[in-house]
Nucleic acid binder design. Structure first.
Lengths: 150, 150
DNA sequence: GGAAATTAGTTAGCATAGCTAACTATACTC
DNA sequence: GAGTATAGTTAGCTATGCTAACTAATTTCC
C-alpha cells in the first residue's frame, strides 16, 4: 500500500501540505494580531500603510489591488489613515486619480509598529538553530513563490 | 562591512525572515479567503467549526481559547453556527457550561469547505518541482514548530 | 465639439468579527 | 445562607469585507 499509491503521492502530499500551511498561517496571524493591536491601528490600515512606506506612493486603485481588496474597502481604509494623519493625498494630472503618500508620522508609526509586530515572531524564529534559521529563510522565499502562483 | 556586523547577522536575519513570513502569511490568507467565501460561512465560523469537527465537542470558553478570541466574540460566532444548523448545544452537569458539538450538516459543510479552501493552494503547491514540494513540507513542519514557540 | 462610454473614487447599506463593560445565572466557599 | 467566582450573554463600539449605486473626470468616437 505504501508504494501502491505512489502515483497519487505528490497530489495527496500537496493537499496535505496546503492544508497544514493554511492552518499554520491562520494560527501565526492570530498570535501576531495581539501585537498588532498595540499600535492602535487596525491590521488592514497597517498593511496598506506598509505598502505606501516600503513600496512608495500610488493611487487608491493600485493600493486596493496590492492589498487584494475592493476599491470601496480601500477608500475607507485610506480615510482612516488620513484621519490619523498617517497618509496624505495629492492631486494628479488625471483629476480622477489621487496620489497617496505616507506622511513622516505614518512612516514613523509604521516602523515602530512593524518592529513590534515581528518582535514576537523574531524571538521564536531566532531561537532556531542556525541551520534551521537559514532553511526558514529559504522556505519563506519558496512560500512567496507559491503565493505568486496563487 | 559585510563581515563587520557578523555578530548581528543572525538577529537581523531573524527579523527580516519574521517580517517576510508575516507578510507572506497575510497575503496567503488574503488569497484563500476568496475560496472561503464560497462556503457562505465566514472565516471565524469556519475555523471554529473546524475545531469542533476535528477536535471534538467542547465548551464555549474552551473554543474561545482554542481560537484565541474573547468569550463574547465566540458567543456570537457560535450563535451564527447554531442559526445555520451547523452546531448544536447540549446542557452539562454544570448548568453554566454548554457543550458545543458539530452537527452532521456542519461536518459535511466543513469538509467540503475545507476541500475548496485548500484547492487553490494545493494547485499552486503541486506545481512545484518534487524537491521543492518536499522542502515545503519540511518548512511547514518547521513553521508549526515556530508557532508553538510563539 | 459634443454625446456616450469608460475609469477612479466615494457613499450607503449590509454582514462578520474583534473588543470592553456590564449583566444574568449557576456553582462554589465559608 | 451570604458572598465570591465562573460561564455565557447582551449591548455597544470599531474595523473590515462586500455589492450597488452614485459623482466626477477623462477618453472615444461620430
Amino acid at each position: 500500500m505504501a508504494d501502491g499509491k505512489q502515483k497519487n503521492r505528490a497530489g495527496r502530499d500537496a493537499v496535505q501540505i496546503a492544508d497544514q500551511l493554511h492552518s499554520a498561517a491562520i494560527h501565526l496571524l492570530r498570535r501576531l494580531r495581539v501585537r498588532d493591536r498595540e499600535s492602535g491601528i487596525g491590521p488592514a490600515q497597517l498593511s496598506a500603510l506598509s505598502v505606501l512606506v516600503f513600496g512608495g506612493a500610488r493611487s487608491l486603485g493600485e493600493l486596493a489591488e496590492a492589498e487584494q481588496v475592493r476599491p470601496p474597502t480601500m477608500s475607507r481604509i485610506v480615510a482612516g489613515l488620513e484621519r490619523a494623519g498617517l497618509v496624505r493625498r495629492h492631486a494628479t494630472e488625471d483629476g480622477r486619480r489621487v496620489r497617496l503618500e505616507a506622511t513622516a508620522k505614518g512612516t514613523k508609526i509604521l516602523q515602530e509598529g512593524r518592529k513590534r509586530r515581528v518582535e514576537s515572531l523574531s524571538l521564536a524564529v531566532s531561537a532556531l538553530p542556525r541551520k534551521e534559521l537559514q532553511q526558514l529563510g529559504e522556505f519563506t522565499a519558496l512560500l512567496q513563490h507559491v503565493i505568486r502562483n496563487l
